[in-house]
Every structure is written in structure tokens, then in C-alpha cells.
Amino acid sequence: MSVVVAASGVRMGYGDTQVLHGVDFTVRQGEVSCVIGPSGSGKSTFLRCVNGLEPVLGGSLRVLGEEVGYTMGAGRYHPWTPKRFAAFRRNIGMVFQRFNLFAHQTALENVACAPIHVAGRTPAAARELAMRHLEQVGLAAHAHKRPHQLSGGQQQRVAIARALAMEPALMLFDEPTSALDPELVDEVLEVMKALARGGMTMIVVTHEIGFAREVGDTLTFFADGVVVESGRPEAVLAGPRHERTRTFLASVL
């Protein structure tokens, strides 16, 4: 299986605070890679580095065959322009903790937005495509509602449909259920499970250990800006090798 994300020694920080102290991480095509860890461990920051929302300061981060943010030319790496970043991100979908739907657009317009304004489809074709994706997440009946008229779970499903409408090769989930009321978590997880069964390559930063156990191909534990351990979810959950992992799992399970 080909490698989609290959991180080695990735370092990142803001000013004097170092957030990532050399992260090694690999995701292969079709894999569902779950990431857990205490807050402030750098797992969300790492996810944001993968699609270039945060700049990497050291190490190497290759995503979909490219060094994120740089193109090799004449023996040197040249930094990307905003336009180049935009072209790179077209192939990577991202789902945020706070949904981040476009507040002035209906659910349908949210999903159709990128196909029209990024992929250059005609509005009619984009709306048809958007409707198909909304059906997929079970929200066709709510297509013409604005985000504030939808529940958190529905908003997050629209956000997933919006990301999928660009037909990405990789999906990033940044704590997709953390901002949801407990009874709304399952509807979002169901959509993600269906996506995983369909063979989508996914990185899921989550606190849902049950989801990681059931759907994940790998489970990675982040703490203090490094990967503490990584492996098959059932193996990591049943027999964590590091003390740090044991104390974390004891506190969340």
C-alpha cells in the first residue's frame, strides 16, 4: 500500500513554545489512523500541519507525495505561494471540532461552495453533486436550512459532506465529536464509519476510544509533542507498553 502521509522528526512551535518535538507518523492508503492524547499534546497541531494550516519548522512532512509547503527545484526547496497551498489542499478534506460551516449559506450551498469556487463546476452541476453528498450523510431533507437551524450533529454531517464534495484523497478529522451533545455523537460516528468502510484514508484525532477500537487500523498516542506509541488499536488499548499511555488510558476508559 502506498504511503499517503510520512512524517519524520516534524517540529513545530509558536515563538518560544515548542509544540511538536519531532513527530514520526505514517499513514498508508485506505488506512484509518486514530490519534489520541491529552489536550495540549500537539495532536491537533500535527493534523493542521498535514494540510499546511500550520507551518512546519523542522523535520520532513510528506503528504500525497509532496513535501508540505515546498517544491524542489534546482537543488533547493522553494516555498509555496498561497495559490500553490490552495491547490494542494483541494485533495485533502478537513472536518473541524467547531464545524466551521459558512454561516451565510444553506447546507446545500455550503457543500456546493468549493465545487463551484475551487473546482470550477457549474452551479447546477455543483448543486446536484452537493445534493448527492447530503443524501449520503442523511441530510437531503435539510438541504435548504442555514447552519444555525441545524443541530450540532447535523452541522457536523454537513461539514463532512462539504469536505467530501471535493473528492479528497485524504480526510482529516480534528476532534469531530468533541463539541457535540452526547446523544448526537453517534450520528456523526456512523457517517465516519461508513466512510471508513468505503476505503477512505483518514486521520482521526478523537477522544472516542470505542470508535478507534472498532474502526481504526492504527492507534497513535501523542503526549508532550511526540508520538509515545503506535500500533493496532486492540494491541495498544489492551497492553500499552509505556507508563504515559497507561495513565492516559486509565483516565479516559
Binding site: 478537513m94 460551516l101 459558512f102 475551487v118
Partner: peptide
């Protein structure tokens, strides 16, 4: 909301397009 700007970037919009399509209308 700054999060909408990030969502626009994550979908592959350039800064100018994000301003015109997402931020200015709001």
C-alpha cells in the same frame, strides 16, 4: 468567525477568493 476562514482554506480557496466568497458577504 476565524474558523470559517480556516474551513475555506482547507477546501482549497485562495486568500482572495475566501475574502470574496466567504468573509465579505458576512
Amino acid at each position: 468567525d476565524r474558523g470559517q476562514t480556516e474551513a475555506a482554506y482547507a477546501l482549497g480557496m485562495t486568500p482572495a477568493r475566501r475574502m470574496r466568497v466567504i468573509v465579505l458577504p458576512q
